[in-house]
């Protein structure tokens, strides 16, 4: 699974331009689903299984897109001014490297600061792609880029840019591979788009699928670093079952079911309360006449930095929990 993770996290797919990542997923899942299509927003939607009398139509969602930048202006000396796509933080930028969707690479520089204690604002930064004039700059206004950083395997801990949310894309691919033959459910694996800019892909996918139940798979923050946030979730403590986040309250019946499933199968789990941020589950929940929805999270340190860290054991436990969940009837009570 690690080589798949590496391939996914090293692909460049900022929101709205997920094509390269989607191609990797398409190749990986070839022959695994019963039916698949790409919708108007670029979501890759794969159907698997048939709905038995005691089964549900289930939407699983993991987003392919990552945060990034977009060129807004090329100045007369060939420096690229940019703005952000999704929640990029300025203190993670200076000195970093980016790769544009068209393959061009560059480094992020910044104007001289009055004080070294200050952080560059986005307006004070630019991308240097090695050009010396507007005319020879290979980037044009509107070109998008992702951050560039190689995958790092620390054994139990894996580090990369875009672990948010390629690690969950890998989880969904693995869950599709291990799809239980006896599952009573019709399951839609949605590799969604434009999550980082407002959960847009999941909005339209959920409308089209009209599921009975929705589960997003995404990363969540942890509280286990020096003077970190006061938060119970930690790396290596198991799959995180979301109770709430900044945008939604998980369906309590689904939370109970997931907890029971984890306990029955001896899958390590932890309960997650995240005070900021949200996932695709928010929009699935209020689709059409309403959908019971929740989220299984992979704990992740340093989210929205170029070095997001997850625990490989947690990743495997999320796959186990998903597979166990799909293997039998789901009762919401």
């Amino acid at each position: 699974m690690k080589s798949l993770i590496q391939k996914l996290v090293e692909s460049i797919g900022p929101s709205g331009y997920e094509g390269a990542t989607r191609e990797i997923v398409r190749a990986e899942i070839a022959g695994l689903g019963d039916e698949q299509h790409i919708d108007a927003l670029g979501n890759l939607i794969v159907r698997k299984g048939h709905k038995a009398a005691n089964g549900l139509r289930i939407m699983l969602s993991a987003h392919m897109d990552e945060i990034g930048i977009i060129a807004t202006h090329i100045d007369e000396n060939g420096f690229v001014r940019f703005t952000t796509i999704g929640g990029v933080r300025p203190h993670t930028c200076f000195g970093g490297r980016v790769q544009f969707v068209n393959g061009v690479r560059g480094v992020i520089g910044g104007e001289r600061l009055e004080s070294q204690d200050k952080v560059h604002t986005f307006e004070q930064m630019y991308i240097d792609v090695g050009a010396s004039s507007r005319a020879d700059c290979p980037v044009k206004v509107g070109d998008m880029a992702g951050f560039e950083r190689p995958f790092l395997d620390l054994g139990n801990r894996l580090v990369a840019k875009s672990m948010d949310d390629r690690i969950s894309v890998a989880v969904l691919i693995e869950a599709l591979r291990q799809f239980p033959a006896n599952s009573p459910h019709e399951v839609y694996f949605v590799f969604s788009t434009q999550e980082e800019v407002g959960l847009r892909g999941a909005t339209t996918a959920a409308y089209a699928i009209d599921p009975d139940l929705g589960i997003s798979v995404d990363v969540t923050a942890t509280g286990d670093m020096p003077k970190g946030p006061k938060m119970e979730v930690g790396l290596g403590k198991g799959a995180a079952i979301k109770v709430r986040d900044g945008g939604m309250l998980s369906d309590p019946r689904l939370v109970r079911f997931l907890v029971n499933t984890a306990e029955q199968h001896n899958i390590p789990y932890q309960l997650e309360i995240l005070e900021g941020g949200t996932t695709d589950a928010r929009v699935i929940q209020i689709t059409r006449a309403g959908v019971p929805a929740g989220c299984i999270s992979i704990p992740c340190r340093y989210i929205h930095s170029p070095s997001e860290m997850v625990d490989y054991g947690d990743v495997q436990n999320v796959v186990r929990l998903l597979t166990a969940t799909l293997s039998g009837p789901i009762t919401l009570e």
Partner: peptide
């Protein structure tokens, strides 16, 4: 220039199946 702001397209593109 790419940036902030929004138009009716912001609501339109998310309706129904996209």
């Amino acid at each position: 220039q790419p940036g902030g702001g929004g138009t009716d397209a912001g609501a339109i593109h998310k309706q129904r199946a996209g």
